[in-house]
């Protein structure tokens, strides 16, 4: 309930970022041509969109019930992760710590990430070739689908929850209002793998594929994605292992999205 005000703010800022980026990267020429061809493009990706929508609805249902279910069948790996990587995140945080960086990474984690996920949908819709858009939707779906399976199979709390005196949950202690929002979306036991990492890396990998069309976006996506990856650890939310797993999930999702399995035409 408390989340609505924060949600409004996030939507307003992300929307303005999208407008600026659309003007800068997509350009007038492509935008002008889009409406005329919109119907064909929509028809081409509609099945994928419907599949993603179904998956997201399913995902939200599972995330509601998931934590309860997870406690029955899941495997609590928090101690194991800590045994492997120890205080890596604590060291990273104390080495980098600076109030300005906290502000930057918090911005990236909430706004940068949302923008990063939404902009490809706009940018690729503006292309006559529907392939990139299709692959983006499929890759997103794979990230969510595989991610949710992991969330049910593994119970893991992030470093801020295991060693609060060493790792500050910087995002939530500096900007508690965001936790009101993220708590609505996700349970604190869902950290392995980092979906922030996997989806951001997915976008960067896809941007690399289209770098001849959107060179500027490729640079920006890479910078934001890298920042998101670091932010998840800098903010004390994810373990290094969650990030590694997230990157692997991203690579797998992009590969699969490009395979013939998902070419339904």
């Amino acid at each position: 309930m408390f989340a609505f005000r924060v949600l409004g703010l996030v939507l307003a800022i992300v929307l303005s970022m999208l407008v600026v980026a659309t003007v800068a990267f997509v350009g007038r020429e492509r935008l002008v041509r889009t409406p005329g061809d919109a119907r064909r493009r929509i028809r081409a990706v509609l099945p994928y969109f419907v599949a993603l929508a179904v998956l997201l609805v399913l995902n939200s249902v599972i995330r509601d019930l998931g934590p309860e279910f997870s406690w029955i069948v899941g495997w609590n790996i928090t101690g194991g992760i800590h045994a492997i990587e120890g205080q890596f995140v604590a060291h990273l945080q104390s080495a980098l710590f600076h109030p300005a960086l906290t502000a930057y990474f918090s911005f990236i984690y909430v706004y940068g990430y949302t923008f990063l996920l939404l902009f490809p949908l706009v940018a690729y819709f503006a292309l006559a070739d529907t392939g990139p858009l299709r692959r983006t939707i499929v890759a997103y779906g794979l990230n969510y689908g595989l991610g949710v399976i992991c969330y049910i199979a593994f119970i893991a709390y992030g470093p801020r929850n295991l060693m609060p005196e060493l790792v500050d949950g910087l995002l939530f202690s500096t900007y508690p209002q965001y936790q009101l929002l993220t708590a609505e979306v996700n349970s604190n036991t869902n950290v392995f793998p980092s979906l922030h990492t996997s989806l951001s890396v997915t976008v960067a990998l896809l941007a690399a594929r289209t770098r001849d069309i959107y060179r500027g976006w490729w640079y920006v996506a890479t910078v934001i994605a890298t920042s998101v990856v670091i932010s998840t650890m800098y903010l004390g939310i994810h373990w290094g292992i969650d990030v590694v797993a997230g990157i692997l999930l991203a690579v797998a999702s992009v590969r699969l999205a490009e395979s013939s399995w998902f070419d339904w035409e």
């Binding site: 408390f2 939530f172 508690p176 936790q179 009101l180 993220t182 708590a183």
Partner: peptide, 18 residues
């Protein structure tokens, strides 16, 4: 009685008189 995710969030809500 409303659930908030953490101490920080609780104090944020209190400070804003909500």
């Amino acid at each position: 009685l409303q659930v908030v995710p953490s101490n920080d969030a609780a104090i944020e809500v209190l400070t804003e008189a909500r």
